[in-house]
Amino acid sequence: MVKVRIPTPLRTLTGGKSEVEAPASDIQALIESLNGQFPGLKDRVCDDKGEIRRFVNIYLNEEDIRFLKGKHTPVKDGDEVSIVPAIAGGCEQGA
């Protein structure tokens, strides 16, 4: 089983749990597995094409998966995955 840290904004989907576990062989399968347990989670993490949203960062054992194999990054029992939505914003144009 892979341990997954759930960020505050997604805990409404996990019944308030900050850590959950799911079986998976890679990140994509992990997201599907989590979505089976917590319906709606995939929509928050992935876009319509199934790609990980631009504002969402996923870490495998503290490594950004963008530097590994993205959604095809393999995972194994005992791994820790963190989902970290970006906090970003902008200035008021012309203000």
Binding site: F55, V56, P85, A86, I87, G89, G90, C91, E92
Partner: peptide, 10 residues
């Protein structure tokens, strides 16, 4: 800002 409202909605 409008960008804040879009991005911070996460």
């Amino acid at each position: 800002s409008p960008t804040d409202i879009k991005a911070l909605a996460l």
